[in-house]
Nucleic acid binder design. Structure first.
Length: 828
RNA sequence: GUGGAUGUGCCGGAGUGGUCAAACGGGAGGGACUCAAGAUCCCUUAGCUUAUGCUUACCUAGGUUCGAAUCCUAGCAUCCACACCA
C-alpha cells in the first residue's frame, strides 16, 4: 500500500502537462501577434540562433528563457506583445560540413532548423512561429540583395582592394577563425598567405558620427555602450603632409605638438604603396619580413613583438625639412588613418620601443618642467605634459596650447590640416564562399560591375557546386555565365557572397511582415511594431552585430522606409553558463548539459525556474545538477499543495504579503532581477502553505506571478481551479494599497522607541544624562507618529519635527539624517 | 596598459546606516515517516556555550557616526571587455 500512496503523491507528470499545454497554445494561436490590437505594442526579441547540427545548447535555453519570461510578463501586463523567432541560417559551419562530411549546406541547414524548431517548441517559449524567418530562404535574402542595390545607388557600397588570408592548398580564402597558428585549419603545414582581392565594402563610416552620438540615448548596458564608443573610436588631431621622392602623403596624428620630434616614419606592411618605397638594397630584407607576417588578423599581429624593416627610403618632415627614414612596422594598422605614423620615440611608448630595437634617433621636444629629460639617458617615453623645446618658433609654449597653434601653422602653410579620425572601418562584406547571400552584380567586359536589376532578384544560389577546392560558386559555369543586364553582352556573375552579418542586420524588421512577397516589408506594419523594446542576447555581439544593425536602421531610415533611428531601445546581455566544476562548456569536452535531456528528467518548468534562480541573469554561473533538482522539488510541492488546498478565508496578513509580492515581483522582472523574484515566490509559497484555507483570489494571484517562470504547471493548476481561459492570456494582478496600515503605524512608533532607547541607554552608560529627545521626521511620516506614545515609551521629554520645519531646534543638523523608517535623533 | 564590474558564512548569493550572526537556495549533520530506499516534513550548521549572555565576524587598513556589511579615503585581490588606433 505504501507504494500506491507514494504513487498518488508523486502524481505530477511534467512531460504530459507540457505537451498538453504546448499543443493547446499552438492550436489556439495564443501567442500570435496581431496589429489591430488596441493595446500598446511591445516588441520582445532574443537574438536568433545559428542552427547548428549539434542542436540547442544550455546557453540558448538560458537566453531564450530570460527573454520568454519578459515577454510573458509584458503580455500579462496588458501589452500587445510580438515575440518572434527565426534562424540565422547562412554561415560557415554548414559549408564546413559540406567540405568535411559531404553534406550539402542546404540539407545540413534544413535538418538543423527542423531540430531546433522542435526543441524550441518543447521548451514552451511563447513565440509567434507564424512570423519565423529563415535567412537562407531566397525569399529572405532577396531583400539582402535589394538593400545591397540600394546601398550601391546611394554610394554606400563600393569596391576596393583588400587583404585576405589565402590557403594555397584549398585555393580559397580563409576566415580569421579558419587560421590556426598562422596555418590553414585543414592543412597544418600550409602557411597562410596574404592576397589582395577586390572586395565590396559598406560605408559604415558615413554614419560614424551618428552611431557615436546616439549611443548615449540608448538604455543599454554601460559596458556595451563603452565598447561601441571605443570601437567607433573618434579621435581629434591633424593630418600632416610628408614628402618622399617627390610624392606627398599625409600622416594622421593626435599629437601635432610633437611634430618637431619626428625621427622616422612607419608604414603598415599592408599599405598599398609599400613596394614603391622599398629600394633595391632593402628588397631582400623586406621580403624576409613580409614572409613572417602571414595573417590579416590584427589580433594575431598584435601578439607579435614589435618588428620592422627599413625600406631604404626617406621622407621629409615639412616643418623643418629634416630627412627621416621610412620603416615598415607590424604594429601599424593599415586601415587606420592613412596606414602610416610619424614616429616620435621620445614621447610615444610604441615609437620608443621601436626606436630602441632598431637603434633609431630619439629627439626630445617636450620638457617635463619638473625634471630633466636627457636624450642620451632616456629609458622610457615621456607622454606627459610640458613645454616645447627644439621646436623652432614654438619653443616655450605649453604642449597643449601648441597643438592648436601648430595645426594653424600647418594649414596656413598648406602642409597639414585639422582632422578627426575614426577607428571604425568600412565594413568589408565580400566573402569568397558558398553559403551566403549572392552579391547581385554581373561583370561585363564593356560595362564593368553592373547591378542585377531589381525585378530579377533574387539571385539564387545554385545547388550544384563542388566543395573543397576554391570558391564553390566558381565551379558552376552555367550559373556564372549570364548576359550583361546593361548591354546584353557576355557577363559573369560576382561569385563572392555577403557576410552573414548582413542577414542579421535587419531581420527584426522582417519579423514585422515576414511573409511579404512584394516588398521588403510593409512600412505601416514595421512602424507599428518597431523598434524593438527589449533585446536579449550575448555580450559577444556588443560590437559587430549591434553596430551593423544600428547602421542598417539608419540607412533604411534615410531611404524613407522606417521612421525611427535605433533598432533596439533596451538591451540585456545574459551571463555565461559554465559546466559543473567551473570549466567553460564546450562541445569537444562534452561537459555541457543538454537542455532537452534535462527537461525530460526534471521538467521544462523546473529548468526554466532553475536557470533564473541561481544568480542574476546577467552574471556567469555554474551548472548544477543538484540545483535543478531543488527547483523541481519546489514545483512538485506547489503542485501537491494546489491539489489538496482547501479554498476559504485566509489570514489578513497573507493577503497583505501577497499584495507586496505582486508589486515586488513585477518590479523584479522589469529589472531582470529574476532571482529575487524567485526568492519572493518561495517566501510567499511558504506563507501560503501555513494557512488552513486559502482564498481563491490568492491562489490565482500566486499562479499568475509564477506563470512567466513556469508556464506549463501554472496553466494546469489554473485549469484545475476551474478557469476556462488561458492563464498566459490573463492579466497581471493589480497591486492594491491594502489596510495593514494601522498596524504599521504602531510598528513605526514601537520601532522608534526601541531604537531610541538603545541609544539613550548607551549615552547613559557613559554617564551622560538625557532629558530631552528631539526627532526629525520625513514629512510623509511626521503625521504617522504619536508624540504621547513616544514620550510614554521612552520616559523622556519628546519633541517632534518635520524635516521641513523652518523653526525646528536642531543644533547639529541631525534632521539631515532622517529618512523613511527612521528619523534623525538629537539628545539633550 | 585603458575602460567597466565585483569582493558577504562550506558554496551560490540577498542585504534599507539601527529590527544582522546576516534572507533564500545548495551542501553537510541529525531526527520523524518507512521493513527499506526514495519522496516529504522538522531541527542544526561562527566560537564559547546553552543563556532573552559574551566574543569574533561581511577583502585589508583607516575615517565619518551614538550606531557601518551598508557612507568616505587609501590599499589589496578577482573577473570581464578592448587591447600596439599614431
Amino acid at each position: 500500500m505504501g507504494i500506491v500512496k507514494a504513487k498518488v503523491k508523486a502524481n505530477i507528470n511534467f512531460g504530459k502537462i507540457e505537451k498538453k499545454w504546448q499543443k493547446r497554445w499552438e492550436e489556439n494561436k495564443v501567442f500570435h501577434a496581431k496589429e489591430e490590437s488596441k493595446k500598446k505594442k511591445f516588441y520582445s526579441l532574443e537574438m536568433f540562433p545559428y542552427p547548428s547540427a549539434s542542436g540547442l545548447h544550455m546557453g540558448h535555453a538560458l537566453n531564450y528563457t530570460i527573454g520568454d519570461i519578459f515577454a510573458r510578463f509584458k503580455r500579462m501586463q496588458g501589452f500587445n506583445v510580438i515575440h518572434p523567432m527565426g534562424y540565422d541560417a547562412l554561415g560557415l559551419p554548414a559549408e564546413n560540413a559540406a567540405i568535411k562530411a559531404g553534406i550539402h549546406p542546404e540539407k545540413y541547414t534544413k535538418v538543423s532548423m527542423k531540430n531546433f524548431t522542435s526543441q524550441l517548441k518543447s521548451l514552451g517559449f511563447s513565440y509567434d512561429w507564424s512570423r519565423a524567418v529563415n535567412t537562407s530562404d531566397p525569399e529572405y535574402y532577396k531583400w539582402d540583395q535589394w538593400i545591397f542595390l540600394k546601398m550601391l545607388e546611394s554610394g554606400l557600397a563600393y569596391q576596393k582592394e583588400s587583404a585576405v588570408n589565402w590557403c594555397s592548398e584549398c585555393k580559397t580564402v580563409l576566415a580569421n577563425e579558419q587560421v590556426v597558428d598562422g596555418a590553414c585549419w585543414r592543412h597544418e603545414k600550409t602557411k597562410v598567405e596574404i592576397k589582395y582581392l577586390k572586395q565590396w565594402f559598406f560605408k559604415t563610416t558615413e554614419y560614424a558620427d551618428e552611431l557615436l552620438d546616439k549611443i548615449d540615448g540608448l538604455n543599454w548596458p554601460e559596458r556595451t555602450k563603452q565598447m561601441q564608443k571605443h570601437w567607433i573610436g573618434k579621435s581629434y588631431g591633424a593630418e600632416i603632409d610628408f614628402e618622399t621622392n617627390g610624392q606627398k602623403f599625409s600622416v594622421f596624428t593626435t599629437r601635432p605638438d610633437t611634430i618637431y620630434g619626428v625621427t622616422f616614419v612607419v608604414f603598415s606592411p599592408y599599405h598599398r604603396d609599400v613596394e614603391k618605397f622599398v629600394t633595391k638594397e632593402q628588397k631582400k630584407e623586406f621580403d624576409k619580413f613580409m614572409k613572417r607576417i602571414n595573417s590579416v588578423s590584427e589580433k594575431d599581429a598584435s601578439l607579435l613583438e614589435k618588428e620592422g624593416v627599413f625600406t631604404g627610403s626617406y621622407a621629409i618632415n615639412p616643418v623643418n625639412n629634416e630627412k627621416v627614414p621610412i620603416y615598415l612596422g607590424n604594429f601599424v594598422v593599415s586601415d587606420y588613418g592613412s596606414g602610416m605614423v610619424m614616429a616620435v620615440p621620445a614621447h610615444d611608448k610604441r615609437d620608443f620601443e621601436f626606436a630602441k630595437k632598431y637603434g633609431l634617433k630619439i629627439k626630445v621636444v617636450i620638457d617635463p618642467v619638473d625634471f630633466e629629460l636627457n636624450e642620451n639617458k632616456i629609458t622610457e617615453a615621456y607622454v606627459g605634459q610640458g613645454t616645447l623645446i627644439n621646436s623652432g618658433e614654438f619653443n616655450g609654449i605649453s604642449n597643449e596650447k601648441a597643438k592648436d597653434l601648430i595645426v594653424e601653422y600647418l594649414s596656413k602653410k598648406k602642409i597639414g590640416r585639422k582632422s578627426t579620425q575614426f577607428r571604425l572601418k568600412d565594413w568589408g562584406v565580400s566573402r569568397q564562399r558558398y553559403w551566403g547571400t549572392p552579391i547581385p552584380i554581373v561583370y561585363c567586359k564593356k560595362c564593368g560591375a553592373v547591378p542585377v536589376p531589381e525585378k530579377e532578384l533574387p539571385v539564387k544560389l545554385p545547388k550544384k557546386v563542388i566543395f573543397g577546392k576554391g570558391n564553390p560558386l566558381l565551379t558552376n559555369e552555367k550559373w556564372i555565365s549570364v548576359k550583361c543586364p546593361r548591354c546584353g553582352g557576355n557577363g559573369k556573375r560576382e561569385t563572392d557572397t555577403m557576410d552573414t552579418f548582413v542577414n542579421s542586420s535587419w531581420y527584426f524588421l522582417r519579423y514585422c511582415d515576414s511573409n511579404n512577397e512584394k516588398e521588403i516589408f510593409d512600412k505601416k506594419k514595421v512602424s507599428h511594431w518597431s523598434p524593438v523594446d527589449m533585446y536579449v542576447g550575448g555580450a559577444e555581439h556588443a560590437c559587430m552585430h549591434l553596430i551593423y544593425s544600428r547602421f542598417y536602421v539608419k540607412f533604411l531610415r534615410d531611404l524613407g522606409l522606417i521612421d525611427f533611428d535605433e533598432p533596439a531601445l533596451r538591451l540585456f546581455h545574459q551571463g555565461m553558463l559554465h559546466a559543473e566544476g567551473g570549466e567553460k562548456m564546450s562541445k569537444s569536452k562534452g561537459n555541457g548539459p543538454d537542455p532537452i535531456g534535462t527537461c525530460k528528467k526534471y521538467g521544462v518548468d523546473s529548468l526554466r525556474l532553475f536557470l533564473v534562480s541561481v544568480t542574476s541573469p546577467d552574471k556567469d554561473f555554474e551548472w548544477s545538477e543538484n540545483g535543478i533538482d531543488g527547483s523541481s522539488r519546489l514545483l512538485k510541492r506547489i503542485y501537491e499543495f494546489f491539489i489538496h488546498v482547501k479554498i476559504g478565508q485566509n489570514s489578513e496578513s497573507l493577503n497583505f504579503e501577497m499584495n507586496k509580492a505582486i508589486k515586488s515581483i513585477g518590479e523584479n522582472i522589469e529589472n531582470f532581477e529574476y532571482r529575487k523574484a524567485t526568492i519572493k515566490l518561495r517566501e510567499i509559497f511558504e506563507l501560503m502553505i501555513k494557512e488552513e484555507k486559502v482564498q481563491r483570489g490568492v491562489l490565482e494571484d500566486f499562479l499568475k506571478i509564477l506563470n512567466p517562470f513556469c508556464p506549463h504547471i501554472t496553466e494546469e493548476l489554473w485549469e484545475k481551479l476551474g478557469n476556462k481561459e488561458f492563464i498566459s492570456l490573463s492579466s497581471w494582478p493589480q497591486f492594491q494599497n491594502l489596510k495593514m496600515n494601522e498596524s504599521k503605524k504602531e510598528d513605526l512608533n514601537l520601532k522608534i522607541i526601541d531604537t531610541a532607547s538603545k541609544i539613550i541607554h548607551k549615552f547613559e552608560e557613559k554617564g551622560q544624562k538625557i532629558k530631552k529627545v528631539y526627532f526629525y521626521f520625513v514629512p510623509l511620516e511626521f503625521n504617522k507618529v504619536n508624540k504621547e506614545k513616544l514620550m510614554e515609551g521612552l520616559g523622556k521629554e519628546v519633541f517632534i519635527y518635520s524635516v521641513q520645519d523652518k523653526d525646528k531646534y536642531d543644533p547639529e543638523g541631525k534632521s539631515k539624517k532622517a529618512r523613511l523608517g527612521m528619523p534623525g535623533i538629537w539628545f539633550e
